[in-house]
């Protein structure tokens, strides 16, 4: 019954017909980084568990994060968390009923992109400089 009705109904405009905007990109990135953090948290659990139960696994993890591939994964996780955290602040601000005007939302979207890259760079620089890697 539902299928029959669906066939006759008009579809809402979908991805390919929208003009690209930075607020749209921020929305998509928020969901994308959320999914990345879901996977990354499992790696974090591995790090904490190896710290508790397996010095040899921990040594492997420590070696991996300083390798080029490991660095890319860590950097991706750190930037994802930076972005999701800062854009999350934007969402909480919206929930208060403020910041919703288009020019404001556009400015804050740019601020989150730039700010999250800066924050991630500082965290990674400080973290990796301390390793002597």
């Amino acid at each position: 019954m539902a299928d029959h009705a669906q066939g006759a109904r008009p579809l809402s405009p979908h991805l390919q017909i929208w003009r690209f905007t930075v607020t749209m990109a921020a929305s998509i990135t928020h969901r994308g980084t959320g999914a990345v953090l879901y996977g990354g948290s499992l790696l974090l659990a591995l790090w904490v568990l190896s710290l508790a139960f397996s010095p040899s696994l921990f040594a492997g993890v420590s070696g991996f994060v300083t390798s080029p591939v490991g660095f890319i994964i860590v950097a991706g996780y750190v930037w994802s968390l930076s972005f999701h955290l800062m854009n999350g602040l934007r969402h909480l601000y919206w929930d208060s009923g403020r910041g919703l005007a288009v020019p404001t939302a556009t400015k804050t979207a740019w601020a989150v992109y730039i700010g999250s890259v800066v924050l991630a760079a500082i965290i990674l620089w400080a973290g990796y400089a301390g390793m002597g890697a």
Partner: peptide
């Protein structure tokens, strides 16, 4: 972010 990244390679 600050605490764990600084101990990743420790």
């Amino acid at each position: 972010l600050v605490g764990v990244v600084s101990h990743l390679g420790a």
